[in-house]
Every structure is written in structure tokens, then in C-alpha cells.
């Protein structure tokens, strides 16, 4: 009877170890995938169109529209196409559009996006960094905002920070209460 119990307990321990390993492998792999641009990427500062503060149902985040979110592109392009925007810094170190291309550039700093809408020559693009999450009851400034992001060698971008006048934004948090 005791041997049986010992055997069962050993099985439970084995399951626990395997289970924890599975969690760490999946979560770890996910974190590694998300961190890759942050670890290996080039830092770019991007200008924003008026930031759209949004009080969402799902999580707390704001929508950011980028200057490079709408580009003029002449050529055969459709919604859903991958597009590469080559960036070049200006005198204020804000990275601006130099050129947009459908093929991956061989050199230079570029960011990869997906075409969301085409109207004539005007192309709307999403880069996956259009949202900034923050905690509840936070006061996030929305004027004169630029975004610090990192882009890796494949053009995938990850948002690092919001900047205001070149400095990280100061987010004011309201005091949490027991009833909040």
C-alpha cells in the first residue's frame, strides 16, 4: 500500500516538474520572441500624429498614430501586403520616411509594416507598435509625443518608450484605493 502511495507521489512530482518546464518553455519562448527586437535592434525615434487617447474595454492602452502611418506609394499594392519603410534621421534625430518599398531592403534602417488601406496613392500602414499599455488611473500626456522604438534586422519593431520633448514621459498615477 505504502509502495503504491510512494509510486503515485513520484508520478505527481514528475508531472509537476514537466508541467513547470512546459510553462517556462512556452512563456520563455514567447518572451524571447517579443524581446528579440529590443535585444538586437536599432533605436529609432518616430514622430506621432495627434495621439488618440482611448479608454478601452480591453486593458488600458492608447492608440498611437505615426507620421509614417500614412505614406504615398505609387505601384501595385493591396491591403494586407507587407511593406518596408526605409528611415533616415533628421536634424532633430527624428527618423522619417526616406522611401517605401515592397521588397526587404538590403541595408539601412527600415521598419516593416502591413498595409491596412489603400486610397489612390495614399497608403495606411500598421507597424504593430500602435498601442501603448499603461496601468489604470494613469494620466498620460498626449501632446508633443514621440516614440522610442527598436527595429531588428527584419524590420520588426518593438515600442520602448514614449518621449515628450525628447525625455521619457512622466506618467502620473492616481493613488490606488481599496475600492479601486
Amino acid at each position: 500500500m505504502e509502495k503504491e502511495t510512494d509510486r503515485k507521489n513520484k508520478t505527481e512530482y514528475k508531472r509537476l516538474i514537466i508541467g513547470i518546464l512546459v510553462i517556462l518553455v512556452i512563456a520563455g519562448g514567447f518572451i524571447f520572441y517579443l524581446s528579440w527586437p529590443l535585444l538586437t535592434g536599432t533605436t529609432v525615434i518616430l514622430d506621432t500624429r495627434p495621439v488618440d487617447p482611448f479608454d478601452p474595454l480591453r486593458g488600458q492602452y492608447m492608440t498611437i498614430n505615426y507620421e509614417i502611418g500614412t505614406v504615398e506609394f505609387e505601384g501595385d499594392i493591396r491591403q494586407g501586403d507587407k511593406i518596408y519603410v526605409i528611415l533616415k534621421p533628421d536634424e532633430n534625430n527624428i527618423w522619417r520616411l526616406e522611401k517605401a518599398t515592397l521588397t526587404k531592403p538590403q541595408h539601412g534602417t527600415f521598419i516593416r509594416g502591413t498595409v491596412t488601406r489603400v486610397r489612390g496613392n495614399s497608403t495606411n500602414i500598421k507597424y504593430g507598435i500602435e498601442q501603448f499599455f499603461f496601468e489604470r488611473d494613469a494620466d498620460v500626456p498626449t501632446r508633443d509625443i514621440t516614440v522610442e522604438a527598436k527595429v531588428d534586422s527584419s524590420g520588426k519593431a518593438r515600442l520602448v518608450n514614449l518621449l515628450q520633448n525628447g525625455e521619457p514621459v512622466q506618467i502620473e498615477y492616481k493613488k490606488a484605493r481599496l475600492t479601486s
Binding site: F30, I31, L34, K126, I129, Q131
Partner: peptide, 22 residues
């Protein structure tokens, strides 16, 4: 908690908040 952790990790990295991202 595992499911919530995946979503919270995604929030920490400010990943794509579109329906495809979800």
C-alpha cells in the same frame, strides 16, 4: 493564471492590440 500571464506579458511588451493580435 497561465492564460492571464500570456496576456499580461503581451501588455508589458505593448504588442499588437488588434483582433489578430488577440
Amino acid at each position: 493564471l497561465y492564460t492571464l500571464s500570456i496576456f499580461l506579458i503581451a501588455q508589458i511588451f505593448s504588442t499588437d492590440a488588434t483582433i489578430q493580435g488577440t
